Amino acid sequence: MSSDPRQRPHHRPAMQAGAFFDGLIGGTDPAQVSEAADRAATLLVRGAADSADAAVADRLLHLADEEGLETLAELWSHAAFDSLAGCLWRLYLLRAWVHATPNLAADQFEVGRTAAPVARVVAGVADPPGPDQVRAMIDAVLRGIAVADFADVLFRAAAFARVVAVGRATLEAPDAQAMLGLAEQLEAAGHLELAHALA
């Protein structure tokens, strides 16, 4: 089976998360869909944080795999970075990229880590940062939604994205600025979360 989530057949899982988004997509009123999507993001983040349950963490980790990244995109891709919905979209998008291109992610992280040592430490990727290590790190970050402080989740993801952005810039990759923008948005959202201003 392909590791690219865009090529996987998607299905509704036989668990609570499967019914979670029912009725949100395909509605006639975009404002109502947006409001429901925001409410779903709040329930996922705030409800998961109260559970500290490994099963919940695993469900959150595989949400995009189970529901389909396209479903999450329809719900959250237009959400502002300084919202819970926007944060979740950016986290799942980052995970999807790492899982689709783990060798590239590891190579770019490897190149960038010497120029961004503080971010490298915050990201917490094992040394040496091979494809298995970057996949394990991004999965640990997503599991953190349920078992860690959400600000820490955002800061770790931001640090990883920042190191990758430095690696891309060093390699003169054309999309370095986009990854840097993602890092800055996640970091800013982390500070909002610390200030209890992220909703």
Rank of each mutant, 00 (worst) to 15 (best):
W97A: 12
S77W: 04
A73S: 15
G86S: 07
A178S: 10
A195T: 02
V147H: 11
G26A: 08
E184I: 01
A55C: 01
E184N: 08
Q185L: 09
E67C: 10
F20S: 14
P102R: 04
A52V: 10
L24E: 08
A79P: 07
D127K: 02
L142M: 13
R120K: 11
L69R: 13
D152S: 12
G27F: 00
M15Q: 10
A80K: 14
A96D: 10
L94P: 01
G112F: 01
L91M: 09
A41I: 06
L43Q: 14
A148L: 10
R113F: 00
S2F: 05
P128V: 02
N103E: 15
E110T: 15
V141Y: 06
H196M: 04
D139F: 07
G23R: 07
A100V: 03
L192Q: 08
G144S: 11
A40P: 06
A48S: 15
Q7A: 14
D38V: 00
D50Y: 07
G112V: 03
W89T: 04
Y92W: 12
A176L: 01
D22R: 10
F155G: 00
E66R: 09
G167V: 00
V147R: 13
A73H: 07
A136L: 08
V163P: 02
R59L: 11
G27Y: 02
F21G: 13
M1A: 12
L69T: 13
A140V: 00
H10N: 11
V122Y: 04
Q108I: 06
Q32L: 13
V121T: 12
C87P: 09
A80S: 14
A37S: 15
R156L: 04
L186D: 02
T170K: 10
E74G: 12
P129I: 01
R59P: 00
R59A: 12
T101D: 12
F155W: 09
D107A: 15
A199F: 08
M179F: 04
L142Y: 09
A195K: 10
P9L: 07
G26V: 06
T170N: 06
S2Y: 03
P128G: 00
L186R: 01
E110M: 07
L171A: 15
L43E: 14
S3W: 12
M15F: 07
M137G: 00
L63Q: 06
E35R: 14
Q32M: 11
V153S: 09
V141C: 11
L44R: 08
E187S: 13
D127C: 00
A55H: 11
A79D: 06
H11A: 15
V163D: 01
H191V: 10
R120I: 01
A79K: 14
D139Y: 10
A115V: 13
G181C: 02
A176P: 02
A80N: 11
F150P: 06
V134Q: 01
T114E: 15
V98Q: 04
A189C: 06
L198H: 05
A31R: 14
V134E: 03
V56L: 10
A52Q: 12
A54V: 14
A64M: 05
L75Q: 13
V33Y: 01
P174T: 05
